[in-house]
Design a protein around this nucleic acid. Sequence first.
DNA 1: TATGAATGAGACTTCATTCAT
DNA 2: AATGAATGAAGTCTCATTCAT
Lengths: 207, 207, 207, 207
Amino acid sequence: MAGKNQPKRRADGELSRTRILDAATEIAAERGYEGTSIALVSAKCGLPASSIYWHFKNKDDLIAAVIERSFADWRRAWQLPADGAAQERLQGLAMQIAKALLDSPDFIRLGLMLALERRPVEARARAMFIQVRTQTYVELTSTLAELAAGLTEAQIHQLVTYSMAGADGLFIAKEIGGDAVDLIELFELHARVLYDTAMRMLDEQAE
Amino acid sequence: MAGKNQPKRRADGELSRTRILDAATEIAAERGYEGTSIALVSAKCGLPASSIYWHFKNKDDLIAAVIERSFADWRRAWQLPADGAAQERLQGLAMQIAKALLDSPDFIRLGLMLALERRPVEARARAMFIQVRTQTYVELTSTLAELAAGLTEAQIHQLVTYSMAGADGLFIAKEIGGDAVDLIELFELHARVLYDTAMRMLDEQAE
Amino acid sequence: MAGKNQPKRRADGELSRTRILDAATEIAAERGYEGTSIALVSAKCGLPASSIYWHFKNKDDLIAAVIERSFADWRRAWQLPADGAAQERLQGLAMQIAKALLDSPDFIRLGLMLALERRPVEARARAMFIQVRTQTYVELTSTLAELAAGLTEAQIHQLVTYSMAGADGLFIAKEIGGDAVDLIELFELHARVLYDTAMRMLDEQAE
Amino acid sequence: MAGKNQPKRRADGELSRTRILDAATEIAAERGYEGTSIALVSAKCGLPASSIYWHFKNKDDLIAAVIERSFADWRRAWQLPADGAAQERLQGLAMQIAKALLDSPDFIRLGLMLALERRPVEARARAMFIQVRTQTYVELTSTLAELAAGLTEAQIHQLVTYSMAGADGLFIAKEIGGDAVDLIELFELHARVLYDTAMRMLDEQAE
DNA sequence: TATGAATGAGACTTCATTCAT
DNA sequence: AATGAATGAAGTCTCATTCAT
């Protein structure tokens, strides 16, 4: 940052890129990969289609960039709990994630759509989602290892998988159910379930 | 076979319809709504594109029919537990559903893709998914009301929502994780979690 | 007529034919030759497309039949004046034709559309219009020859052509102008103009 | 040629647009709205169909542009009479219009076809014709008001409507009758009729 | 006297992408 | 750092017509 003394062109370039990404994010989160046409993005951001190709190699590259940026936004919206009792830390984390899903649902909605597709070839966009999702998996794994010291690796894998699956499923439930679904309350339940399960696993191990 | 008591069998429209639905189901489950082109379906079922339009009003109508039929297939693959101890019945149900998801994943994969999309207009296919899903919700609600008599309506709503969300999420986890995810084991965990939660709710209520 | 003792099938056949013609007339008068699709006619009359082909060889044949029947209807709505003073007879004829155009505009609207088209090949329908129109030309020619005895053939040809052109043009003016155009009044003017012109021609000839 | 003061000439979009319009005009004047397929236009102008959509939003937009341009051409072919005796001015105008119709019949032929159609929705092309036609109506109205000062507004409206109807009708008569119809002679008659009628109206008013 | 089913051709339109400027 | 123009492929859907029953 700082020192922006280039002839302003650079600044405009950055701005255009951002406008394209904004438009593409909005559309892709609504209509998925195939439903996001370059013409639609062009119309929404006001730049001609050929300009989009100046900033991004192709459509796949564009959607991958969308995933990358919206993951970063989403990831910034919550942080791993630093200290406190295990149960409270878990509850706090769940609340943060629930709120992040409510506030910026683009990342998950688009990501899940990509994850569900099984297109023969296709490529970067889906891979990008899998990659950043793995990053979350790793973070949660180390957090859990700390919160519930003593669990086996297999148990941790199971718990983290179950916790992420629950988050995905609850997000979808909210998408489908709308106001009939209280996401916060359900994430609270989810956190409690995870805590209880972890404790039970430790107990059973102790015997 | 045999014993068909239809007039004569007449040009076998029913058969063609089935062939089209088979092809469309396979493709739609892999590529979603937008990714399912009529040309692709035509190529896979061997009938020309124009014949598809004899059997279905348009693409939306076709995909809605796919959802309808594959839900019926999927629903036929499991049945609500008739009797036995509550915990066993829940475990049994969870196992059946897990297997149904593994055996005929078309319904859920396509349905979830549709559920995630937020296309401005278009509708029938998505509406059909929401509708049959609601049917499942209702069935599970009455099952749970019986299994855990004493729960409030709100609690049952929460539990059923959570159970369906878990199923969706676990399905996705399996899609993404492949062999690294043991769906059966996770569904067992899910059933146990649901049982424990229901019991806890009843306990807390008793106090 | 009478004596309809055939097994009713025949009657149904006639009825179907009529229903098809009714539907086709309505559509063709609105949308012209190309705009009249067999599917549209089928939807409007309730019979399947293949039934239309049982009654008519092809689309061209159908439209030709439409022209033929609607010309007959239209022609039946007015009659050549039998006697009276020339001016009154002309006025009366003009009024009848004006009313016939207002009451059953299908024939003229469709006919003019066909007349204006210059499709390379195409065929029967347009030819049918030209044919029935010629019939009207002949009738008007002999009427005028009687009303204004003494005119040369060339003059009669000119007058009849001008009178039919006026009728066509006024019909179009009404189509475009709607309520701003008083068709009756304009036909009255047209009749007067024709009468005056015929008289003038006779005068000039007399000199 | 030469003297083009546009920046550089850049890929010659203007030329392509013109080529497309030329082709579309020719075809639409022969076959009407529905008969003008994009493929036909593409074949005639040498540009691929998709390029047509770069220059025009859709088919309706293209046909509307055809109407607009061919009206302008047609309108340029005649001018309102500046001075001289009323009768001569009217005759002169009629001759000009007759020749304009013979020389560039595209505008009227296509326009009349559109005017006769009563398609449920769609519109722009037809609306454009109605609009430019109204422009002519206004011009003729003020010319007539000047040529035959003293006529009431209603009379002028009637005369202008009748004069335009006559022109339309005579054009059609020429289309149908071909060489059997002497358009020039008929327009002369038409001019005379209009003059006589205007004079008669003034006379009757004077009484 | 019909009609369900099918079909190849072609309708309009959008697609992702390229390239000269 | 862009963009006007173009393009071949592919999109959904309708067309007129046929044919076995």
